[in-house]
Design a protein around this nucleic acid. Sequence first.
RNA 1: GCGGCUAUAGCAUAAUGGUUAGUGCACUGGGUUGUGGUCCCAGCUAUAAGGGUUCGAUUCCCUUUAGCCGCCCCA
Length: 449
Amino acid sequence: MNPKIETPEEKIAKASANQPHTLRGFRDVLPEEQAYWDKVMDTARRLADDYSFGRIRLPLLEKTSLFERAVGKGTDIVEKEMFTFLDQSGDRVSLRPEATAQVARAFVEHGMLNLPQPVKLWYVEPMFRYDRPQAGRYRQFWQWGLEALGSQEPIIDAQVILMCAQLMKELGIEVVVKLNSIGTPQSRREYIMELVNYFKQHRRQLSEIDKKRLAKNPLRLLDSKEEGMEELKKNAPQIVDWLDDDSKQHFMKVLEYLDEVDVHYELDPFLVRGLDYYSKTVFEIVQVTNNPERSQNSLAGGGRYDDLIVQMGGREGAGAMGAAVGIERVIAAMKDAGAPVPHARKVEVFFCQLGEAARRKGLLIFERFRQAGVPVAEAFGKGSLKAQLDLANKHGAKIALILGQKEVLDGTIIIRDMDSGAQEIVDSDRVVDLVSKRMTDERALTAKG
RNA sequence: GCGGCUAUAGCAUAAUGGUUAGUGCACUGGGUUGUGGUCCCAGCUAUAAGGGUUCGAUUCCCUUUAGCCGCCCCA
């Protein structure tokens, strides 16, 4: 025949064509995966609704200072993971690495202090962190977030945690909630001093990394995984023993409430969070799995941030509690758990056309079916009937409609039963009614049987 | 940001220092000029990019890029 031979020049041209590629850590979500996204989004939205959280949509870009103030200048997120740049006017702006700071900003900015408290808000938005990508860790990732602002009541903490746990449950993911309290800034300061004292005594046993932590962020020593730390950590002072009475009471209450609603939790005295704004309750939700390949199994995290509101210029003592759930990780967890996912729209009727006249009329017939609410699909891009029936079959359609030259002239159309292969020629004006009736009859039959 | 492993078509994989880099799935077309699910035939599509060693590199070496793993951090 005429085999295409690639000349060396063409090969070089092809190689140097420099195919465009997503940025590192960024990804496309293709149609195959949408069923998972839809399921997570739908469940999340319904839950938020059920608990009377109102949706908030936030801008992608904020002044860098917002995150520096809220998340903490010394944190890794702010120090090295933010996409930060100067805009045309010379302002330092950043793609948000998380949304709690934004929500707190919005709460104060829009005078939500004057609404009945607490104000409950939720969001699903992409976040950006310039981090080294790994499975379950991307530079753009989505979070479902809950924030309840304007209350210090421990029941709010429990409810937010419950909602996250509930989401996992409804998505078929087995999880454990890890819980701790890190107290107020004052009590924490005292505790940190004690902790530093303790580790200083054992300085020689610390690794280089841990020595750095000791100097920079001593709390992080508690979740260090370095060799020999297990033993040291066991004997280290625990933050629960240093909590002020108020924090202690608060924490006890949270636990009581969680017991009441049967949320399966574990106390983790070593759980600390990396963001500066946390106080009192902190938690993390981890997938229970025996799959060793799942490295990023922390699906959600959050806690109380009583002081952030004040920092943003809000009222003293307002208090707030929040959580963020990683959508990509939840989806990975669903796949890992083999959670059932509803399939995309099920096609009942497939329209096949032969010839130009049929194609033209088909556009109209397809539209009639669609308006009648019948799940119908077509393949106008194809010519051969064989290929169209093949597709009808792949879609799992029960009925194929065949419209050819002859039928267009006669004003008829063929209804083909895909299971039996039986065909019937009907008046094309009545085909929508006939097919709809067939489908309702069949549904009634299967319902009875 | 540090360390390790990996890179063959859309996907999953085989093989190789030496002629046409094999197979499965998928995709396109045909067998059936207007009838699917099975079958048969044909077609399409790949050695990540750049450099080096070599008579010859997809194979060996280096660099880059990307993915994964560990650290860091976190969702």
